[in-house]
Each structure stands twice: as C-alpha cells, then as structure tokens.
Write a protein that binds this DNA or RNA. Structure first.
Lengths: 230, 230
DNA sequence: CTCATGTCGATACACTGTATTTGTACAATA
DNA sequence: TATTGTACAAATACAGTGTATCGACATGAG
C-alpha cells in the first residue's frame, strides 16, 4: 500500500476558545435571530462537534450570558462623560444602538442578571458617574429607574420593528399593517380613544420617541438627585 | 361474541375550545415556567392528541399570545379611576401583580404586540383616562414612557427573584448570593462604585422600589401633561 | 343503508439540548 | 523503545420539541 493509497492524516481539531464560540453564536444570531442559535450550528461553524462546546460552557443559557456580555463591551463608552445626565443618556442610547445592531439583545436584556466582566464594567461606569451626588440608595434608584425605562423601550421598539417587517413593509400604519384585525376592532366603536390615537396620532420615528421619553425620565431623576430627601 | 368480549365504544373526544386550551397552558406555565409549556403537554392535560390544538391555534406563538391576553383580563381594572395619574399607577401595579402571579408573563411582556381583545381593552382604558388632557401625541408618549418603565422594572424584578431562588434562599445579599464570583470581582478593586453600592446600599423591598421609580416617572409625565408644548 | 365529509389521532420528520460511550493521539512511564 | 495511562474529540444515544402528512373513522346527508 503506497502513500497514494493512504489518506492524509486527519486534520488536527481546530483550536477553540470562548471568544471564537461566542463570535460564532453572535454571527448566527445576527443572521437568523436567537432561535437560529443551536449548539450544533455554532459548533458546525467552528468545524467542531457539538459536544466540544461543553468544555467551554455547561449550558446553552451560559452561552447566551457570554453573548450578552460581549455586546456590553460595545455598549461601554470609551470615555467617561463628566455630567451624570450625559452618562445616563449615553448609556441608554448606546444600549439601544447595540440592540438595533443585534436585535436578539432585546430578547435577552433583563432576562438574567448581567454579571459578566463587561456588564459589571458598564454598571461600574454608570454608578461612578452618579457617585457622590446623593446617598447611594437614591443613586441606585436612579440607575434602576432609567435602566427599566430604556430596557422596556428598546424591547417595544424591536418588537414593533419585527411586527412591521413581518406584516409586509408598511412603515407604521398600525391598522392596515396588522391587517383587518385591528381595523375591525377599531370599527366596532368599542375603543374610541384607541381609534383616535391610531387615526389622529402623528407617527414619530422611534429614535425621537425614545429620546423624548428618556428625557422625561432624566428630568424626574434630576429632581431627586438635586433635592436629596431629608 | 358476547357483550363482555366487545370493548366499549371509544369515548367521544372531549370538547375543546380556546378557553380550555389557554387555561391548561397557563396552568402548566404557572407550575413550571414557560419552558414547561409544550403542545404535547397542553394537549395531554386535555385528553387530546397534540395535533388537535392546531384547529384552534396555528402556531405555538399564537398560544402565547392567547395566554398573555388572558392575563390582560386580570389586569384590566374593574372600575375606572377618575385621575389620570391614578389610572397609570393602577395599571402598573396590576400588571406587576399579574406578573408575580404568573412569572412567565415577564418573559412575554413586550415580546409581541398585545392585540387581543383584553390587551386592546387595557390600552383603551388607559388612553381614555388621559384623553383630552393634551394633544394625542403627548398622551401616547406618556403612556409609552410609563409602560416602558414598568415593563422593564417588572422584568428585572422577576429576574432577580428567580436568581435569588436559584442561588439558594438568600433574601438579597448580592455578593454571597451569587457566590464567589461577584465577591471576587468586587475584591479586585476594579469596581469601587459598584462595591460601595453593594456593601453600603440598603436593600429596599421590591414593591417600594417599583412604586418609587413609578412615582418619579409619573412626576415627569405630570409636568408634560400640564404644560403642553406650544 | 350507503356514501361523502370533516375531524381526530397516529405516524413521521427534522431538530433540539445534553448524557454517555467510544475511539484515539499524545505524554509519561518502565 | 515499547507500553501504558490519560486526556479530550467524536460518535452515538435519548428524550423531547414543533409541526406536516396521512389514514381511519364517526357522523351527517341523501
């Protein structure tokens, strides 16, 4: 049996690390949403067997945690803004932009505590920007309130975005976008206020809507930060 | 062949409707979370084959939509409060209470537009409470901002609740609750502000935290509702 | 009483996350 | 150098998933 008959030795398994795994998973999620992320597909994209991944993560949820933390690296502002208000505003907008780049983030935001290094760094930077303005409890309340707002707002925005994309390409047009159903419901006359909102409401683009609500919340925070409780 | 040898005629299939299906699904979700809801298990609980459900829903997501809308029936306040602020506050609190009764709601809130009859009714009632105070656009912005807040806040609360439950029974105690990891991270000194918050912060119970943040947001809304833009 | 109809359940398929077993390339030992 | 031990990759296996398809069968109409 000559060399020519014998096949080449099998290629050594490609080296793996969490970074590569997470990158592959994020790529899959960016292309096809969270549901397109399966351990088999992630592994396949790395020329590895599915079970190999379990050396680096012990459950699929952990993979999600790593993905989220990776995105937190994009969210973390490179330079510290001086103003607390600017810090919170930038955090909100950067999170929103990250979620628009990686829509699946909206599904994961707030689903599990963000305890990865980048998540912690973001929290640290945020708290640092507010540190010393008042007692720590008020600061925490402020951060939590703003976070709750932009988490919820981002989630709704992405949800609407998907709905619009699914029901054709209608830019907004709530009633005809969601087809006959909403139209019919509104026609029953049982939802006058809603009908008015749908028909008479101006449709503002998502970004200004987000920014406006954010400003309101920041105003509310400002009041509490500047007038500490007795 | 006597009667005794012959089997009884097969029992007629139990009558089914969406209400029963949704009730079964909710029961399963209440017991074991969303992931415990499978079409097979829902059907089994109704003594039916899995495929039978597809006469009533055409996809599992639709079942989730029905479940959410069912809970919106619990959220809808029975009597209309006169004050707009009271209306929004009650909406937020009722949603939170529903989410504490049905924790899976936190996973579904804001995931898809709530266009079911009860969801629409809730929206209608909310808009009605604010109708006429200012232009419809400002009203929409107000509702959206408050909704974004309490959606995000509820999500975080339920997430923390689950984390606490999973890491033992520690009431809060962030650092030791999540075991050595957070402790070690804080010990590195790279997160001074966060460390201060963890060690020096008072832990307030979730409800007052929720209510406080809500009040802040409502204050911000009040400012815009009473002083309409020129 | 026969036949058409429409519904129900069984079967099937392509996948999922993960446990367990099997193979095998390399390192340490004799 | 020959042999054994050990790690780790891969294959296999399992119990489950959502959903498409199809065959059987009870019920209604003629």
């Amino acid at each position: 049996m000559t060399v020519w008959d014998r096949p080449e030795p099998p290629t050594r398994p490609v080296p793996l690390d969490r970074e590569r795994i997470v990158a592959a998973a994020i790529a899959l999620a960016d292309e096809g949403g969270l549901e397109a992320v399966s351990l088999r597909k992630v592994a396949a994209r790395l020329n590895a067997g599915p079970m190999r991944l379990y050396g680096y993560i012990s459950t699929k949820e952990e993979l999600f945690d790593l993905m989220v933390d990776e995105v937190y690296a994009e969210i973390l502002p490179e330079e510290q803004p001086g103003d607390w208000r600017e810090a919170l505003r930038v955090l909100a907008h950067r999170t929103r932009q990250a979620a628009l780049r990686h829509e699946w983030l909206a599904d994961l935001l707030g689903r599990r505590p963000a305890l990865g290094p980048n998540g912690l760094a973001v929290t640290e930077a945020t708290l640092a920007a507010l540190d010393g303005l008042t007692d720590i409890d008020t600061v925490m309340r402020a951060v939590e309130t703003v976070s709750a707002y932009f988490t919820g707002a981002i989630r709704r925005e992405v949800t609407n975005l998907r709905a619009e994309r699914a029901t054709g390409l209608s830019k907004r047009d709530w009633q005809r976008a969601h087809g006959p159903h909403v139209t019919r419901m509104l026609a029953t006359g049982r939802f006058p206020a809603l009908a008015k909102a749908v028909y008479d409401g101006t449709d503002v683009d998502a970004e200004t809507s987000f920014a406006t609500g954010l400003d309101w919340v920041l105003d509310a925070v400002a009041v509490r930060l500047t007038t500490p409780p007795p």
